[in-house]
Each structure stands twice: as C-alpha cells, then as structure tokens.
Design a protein around this nucleic acid. Structure first.
Lengths: 136, 136
DNA sequence: CTTGACCTTAGTGTGTACTCTAAGCTTTAT
DNA sequence: ATAAAGCTTAGAGTACACACTAAGGTCAAG
C-alpha cells in the first residue's frame, strides 16, 4: 500500500507518516522499485497503536518508549509499562491542578467585573491585576 | 535602575526583560548615556501587572491586548476586558476536560495492569493499546 | 590601569508535532 | 504522448517563551 492510501485509511497526512518515520516511530519495511514506501498490514496495526497511545495522552517520545517495550516484551516487565503509565498520569494531574487554579482565578476576575459598556477606567479586572492580591 | 537590579527585584532574568521589550510588552522609557536600559517605578508596576496576568494563565499575546486596553482605558469597555477573561477561562476549561479524559484513560490502563516483574508478554496496557477499545 | 562585573546587540537553540515548499521523478489515464 | 496525480528528498516555517552565545563596550574598585 502506498503512502497516500495508507494515510487516508488512518485519517492522517502523508507528512505525518514521513515525520513518524524520520523519528523512528513507524518504518515501512519495504520500498517499491521506484523508491515509494510500501506499507503492509502490520504497519497499519502499529500505526493504530500509536494513534491510540496519542489518544490517551502519551507524547511521541513516550510512545517511542512503549514501542521499544512492545518490540522486546521479553526484556521488559509489566511493572515498567505500568510505571510509565502512572508517571504520565501524575504529570497530567499536575497540569490539571495548575489549569484549575488558572480557571478559579479567572472566574473570580470575571465575576467581580461589571462587564458594562462604559469605558474601562475603573475595571475591576485591570485594577486587580495592577494592585496585587485579591486572587489567592 | 539598570536591567540587572530591575530583574532581580522581580525575580526574572534579564533575557526575559529584553524579550518582553522586543515583543513590546515592557519598554523602558529611557536609556543612560552609555545606552544602558534605565527602568523606573512605573515600569516596575507594569511588570508586576504582566507577571500577575501570567500567573492567572494569560499568554503574552493576551497580556499585550490587556496592556493596550489598560493604556487606552477610555477607548475600551469593561465588557471587552470581561470577554477576554471569559474566553480565556473557557479555553482553559476545554483543556482541563481533555486532560481529564487522558487522566481517566490512563487510570483505567494502570488499574487493569498487574504491574508484576514478569516479562510484558501479556501486558494488559500494551494489548489494550493494540487491540482497540476498552478505554472509551 | 587593569580586573571583573555588568551592560549592549544580533543571532541561534530548545521542545513539540507537525506543515509547507521546492525541485524533480513515477504512474495512470486519456 | 502528455497531463494530472502521486511519490521522492531535504530543508524551512509555525507557535510559545524564553535561554544561551559571541563579540564587544562601560563602570567601579583596588
């Protein structure tokens, strides 16, 4: 299967596939005589793995690690995979906390603002940001 | 006040200050005869505004908008400021939702994995990522 | 008067995940 | 035979917020 058809079956761009190849996430095993990439069924499966891993929040670098483990399952333990998963989850939890603080602060700012059409001379949002404190 | 002292009072790097100047967020009004930046009290206040805005989650581009409004309060309404704030908050809410979905999926993956020290041949995380579905 | 700390500019590098471009070769249909 | 669609490569561009580098000028202390 050439890159164009492969890409459209997966709903990604050909650029993305070439990018993944360059970064060693998905290397088609064969080329046609003209030098065209020739993808097979197992590469389709692997790409689906990559896309699912992305879907649950892994970065490409992390997915590369997962693929290494997947390719050499004997040399790696379940524990290792679980650790990667938990580390990722905890990092995401931290980010959620940070964003939640942002959200709360912005809600406070918005709620105390009249939102009227008059000039912003006494806008409570601007003055809170200027005058320090009142947020947390 | 020269850039070094100004920076250390605010807990930022001199690079950051030069970066903000290049991007028109904070322009020191004067230079010494030697060409050194000379910061004054009002610039200290403005930098504090910027840092607080960052602290609640605004990007530098958004802060630039806020500063425009702050400088020309007459030409802008409270409503405009409130809108910016709410838009930002809603974007952050979307991002939180996305990360929360990631978090849930990763939790499911981690919880179903034994986490043992044996080889990962039958690792439930890897097989869930391979075989589609089981997450959402 | 020299050393060291501080300042200047312009430009490059970082990380993430692509996207786009240019210049050119291959395949398929007419 | 030729035109359109598709493929190839290497390399540059995007967004964000800086950090770092080189090469050099300035200032205060000893």
């Amino acid at each position: 299967m050439k890159i164009g058809e492969f890409a459209s079956q997966l709903g990604v761009s050909t650029d993305t596939l070439r990018y993944y190849e360059k970064h060693k996430l998905l290397m088609p095993s064969r080329r046609t005589s003209a030098g065209y990439r020739d993808y097979c069924h197992s590469e389709l499966k692997q790409m689906r793995f990559i896309l699912r891993a992305k879907h649950v929040g892994f970065s490409l670098a992390e997915i590369k690690e997962l693929l290494q483990i997947k390719f050499h399952k004997q040399q790696h333990s379940c524990n290792e995979v679980k650790e990667l998963t938990i580390q990722k989850r905890d990092l995401i939890a931290q980010r959620i906390d940070e964003l939640t603080r942002f959200h709360q602060s912005l809600t406070i700012l918005a709620d105390t603002c009249c939102g009227g059409k008059e000039p912003a001379n006494n806008c409570s949002i601007l003055s809170t940001l200027e005058d320090l404190d009142g947020l947390n």
